[in-house]
Every structure is written in C-alpha cells, then in structure tokens.
C-alpha cells in the first residue's frame, strides 16, 4: 500500500538574531516515508535533530526547504511544508495526531474535556466525545475523580496519560509520539504499547521517539537514524 507520510529534502536551521545572528543548521536533506500500519522510531544522539524533525512533521516548525506530503483520510495529498496556517489547522484536525511529552495546561478546563476536544473539533457530539474520552482515561488508569479536574495539579505521569488519551482518542492517519512512555509505570506502559498496536492495526502510520529500548523494540517496525550535522563554523 502507498505511504501516508512522505518527507523529502527537508532542511531546517535556526538563525538566532539575538545572539549575533548565529546560524544553527539542524537538518539537511532529511527524508522519511511511512506506510499505513507502520511504526518508525527515530534514533540518534541527543541534539541530532529528532525533536526538530518531529516538530516539522507536526507543523510546529516551518521547514526551510523540502516537502512533507501527507495523505488525508479522503485520500487527497497535502504538502504540510507549504501549507497555509488554516490548512495546517485542518490537517491537525483530521490527519496529524500528536502526543508530546508535556501537556500544555489550559486554565480551568477539565481533563476529560481536553481529551474530548479533538473529537468535538471533528463535529462529534460533546456527550459522545466525553464518553469516549472518559473510557480511554479509564483504560490508562486515570481515576474517575480526576476526569473532571483541570490537570494543572496532576503528577507528571497523570498529565502524560491525559496527553496520550488526547492523542489516541481520534483515529488520525498519522500519529507522532514524542517519548510517549517517559514518565509511566510498567502497567501504563503496556497500555500505551497496546494502543500503538491497535493504531497500527487500523492502518495508522506512526513516527516516534522512544528512549525506552524495550518499548521501541516492541512497537517499531523500523529505526531511522537521525545523524547530527557537523557544527557550521
């Protein structure tokens, strides 16, 4: 079957204007192709550009050159690298799911609403979205009494499970996972491994950074080495 994500010739660097306009090249000619049902693990030393590549794939960073082709649920293809802000927002609604290490907490919004939001954004009724969100939070062993609370005061592991539920609650064709098990105990780690397995089974393409070698070995079909660029003079 054809790819879900196909990135080619990606380059990304940063110009730090406040530090004497120093140029920091991070990625050059990076390429990545992921098929439906496939999970690719990004590997490489710290600072090699794994997180930068993930941010490019999410549209959070803008690529200096190259293309990031994504196949939408309707089969059409979009180039995230050249997409307008409104197109990026639409792609994040229906195509790109994302689990980051850290939850950006919104004041006063309960955990269950944060998790339900991607479903509501797609037009699913609030009741159904909440029910699905709550079920997934239960599966990730987040106690019922926490569902109605804003996660600001949650522990790191609890916040991460809210984040995971938010990422997995909707069926995105592409899932980006940045250290999805970093602060989880063994039981919840197994739940995440199962969720990844189910996402693959339904045909999602996944790209992840997994520092936990055991998790990586269990979920990844392939490892892509991201090599550091040599420092520019």
């Amino acid at each position: 079957m054809s790819w879900t994500l196909k990135a080619e010739g990606l380059a990304k660097g940063f110009t730090l204007h406040l530090q004497g306009s120093i140029e920091i090249p991070v990625l050059r000619d990076a390429a990545l192709e992921v098929s439906p049902g496939e999970c690719v693990a990004l590997s490489g030393p710290s600072g090699a550009g794994k997180s930068t590549l993930m941010r490019l794939l999410q549209g959070n960073y803008g690529a200096d050159s190259g293309c990031i082709l994504l196949r939408r649920p309707d089969g059409s293809v979009a180039d995230l690298a050249g997409a307008s802000p409104r197109e990026v927002i639409a792609l994040r609604r229906d195509t790109i799911g994302h689990v980051s290490q850290f939850l950006r907490v919104i004041p006063r919004v309960p955990a269950v609403e944060i998790v339900a939001e991607p479903l509501v954004a797609r037009g699913i009724s609030r009741e159904e979205a909440r029910a699905r969100a709550s079920a997934l939070l239960h599966r990730l062993n987040l106690p019922e009494r926490l569902h109605a609370l804003p996660p600001a005061t949650f522990s790191g592991g609890e916040q991460q499970r809210v984040n995971l539920a938010r990422g997995f609650v909707a069926d995105f064709p592409l899932m980006l996972l940045d250290e999805p098990t970093a602060s989880l105990d063994a039981a919840n780690r197994d739940v995440v491994i199962a969720l990844i397995g189910e996402a693959k089974a339904r045909g999602a393409a996944l790209v992840g950074i997994f520092h936990d070698a055991e998790v990586r070995d269990r979920v990844a079909d392939r490892v892509l080495e991201v090599a550091p660029l040599r420092e520019a003079a």
Partner: peptide, 18 residues
C-alpha cells in the same frame, strides 16, 4: 505572521525572537 504556535516556537524575525 502565521500559525500561532509556529510564530511563537519558531520565530524568524529578530523582533519576534526578542
């Protein structure tokens, strides 16, 4: 100008970086 999180996380212009 651009997508909110991109402008804030990947600012290009010296003034935005400041």
């Amino acid at each position: 100008e651009g997508l909110t999180d991109r402008v804030l996380d990947d600012p290009r212009h010296p003034y935005t970086q400041l």
